[in-house]
Design a protein around this nucleic acid. Sequence first.
DNA 1: TTTTGAGTTGTTCGA
DNA 2: GTCGAACAACTCAAA
Length: 482
Amino acid sequence: MKKAPVIMWFRRDLRLSDNRALTAAIATGRPVIALYVLDDVSPGAHAMGGAQRWWLEGSIRALATDLRRFNIELILRKGRADHVLGSLIEETGAHTVFHSRDYAPWARTLESKVSQIAEKFEAGCRWFTGQLLFNPNEIKTAMGQPYKVYTPFSRSCFASPTPPAPLHNPSQIQPFSQLIASDELDSWKLRPECPDWAGGLETTWQPGEAMARNKLDIFLSQRLEAYAHARDYPGIVGTSQLSPHLHFGEISPAQCWHAVRHATENQSNGDLAADKFLMELLWREFCAHLLHHWPDLPNNPFKPAFNNFPWRENPQAFERWCQGRTGYPIVDAGMRELWHTGWMHNRVRMIAASFLVKDLLIDWRKGAAWFQDTLVDADLASNVAGWQWVAGCGADAAPFFRIFNPQLQGEKFDPEGTYVRHWVPELANLPNTLIHRPWAAPVDTLRSAKIILGETYPLPLVDHQSARRRALDALKATREPQ
DNA sequence: TTTTGAGTTGTTCGA
DNA sequence: GTCGAACAACTCAAA
């Protein structure tokens, strides 16, 4: 008698290497059915934005190709994941569902539904870790509480047992012989058509496990050494650019962790270079743990005092921010990079976010929603925790008086104007001394640079100095007892 | 329980 | 132009 198959339910772990769920599924010695479910129906699942759908398409295509080498067809189904899994178990008589745990609140709800439905059909359900380095229920303070401050959190992680070493690629996977119906990937229409805004994404990124590994190797050999310093300059490629690959699980954080450690173990200053990068991985971790313990993080301020903050409605200003037409070159460069490539340099994310929240006093949730829709790496946890941090209402938030000055930040982190010239070409002819403050350029300079302020490039949407005072007043009022 | 030290990413002001 | 101090008080984490 034939053995009943098991289902490997791929989610945000679109890789074959270091995939504990997959490895365990294979280890059962049973035929493996590989499944991906496009779930736009489960509450909260609609959070996947347009840019991510574009990425998902490439990532699924790559995974399907990789699986085909094992004679495995990736089954594609659309609908509520628990329903889809229920019917697939029924169709195939599957024995167990294997999957990696996703810590987003809606995903956890879905996981328990899947587990219930599997039970109904007398199948098991087993989940594995892999999306995170540490178990959120194990990184706790001495009092047994989750951390609310990053630095002690990171110390605790470094003091914890090292994340398990990554698993290798499977050597073989036993296919399931029965034919199973699958959607055509094209029918999901994950890529934009009219209008097709994804041209910039196409030329910037290549989704898939192989490319993720490639990115990591390039980072280790070419950029890790200078990372601590170079990561702050948007005009040079100093970061790993692994975020979207990590988000979709094309590479695991444990693979990054161990690869970085391994690459630096024989270098004199290795630990320094490595730790800086590991700290960034731990920021991702910190945000995920926060969301795990505070599922309401996407909706409401972490600090309740901000519940009554007087956010302003200003659709015109918001639109200009989205379009990269605020009149502050570094902000506009960032917003245009985002729109074109689905990604924005970390430093510029802070500057652009600070501008929306502090200079325009627009609700951080509006900014977070825009990022969620346009970033290829949009991660619910990192996104909302980051926005709350900038807004001052989050965990371990910046002091309220810390308001980024877009001109100074530009001059400090883009001193040659490389970044601004690339993304805001209409300012390209301004000298370095004026590129971050075109409004202060003399008439002659503007004329010879072919700039007409208010026409070819906007005047500043707000005056930063007065906007700063306005924000300080609003923040001060929030802090005072009602 | 109380106390103490510390807290990703900054800006402005005045000497 | 450069430098250090002030910004304001609070919460967190650990001793």
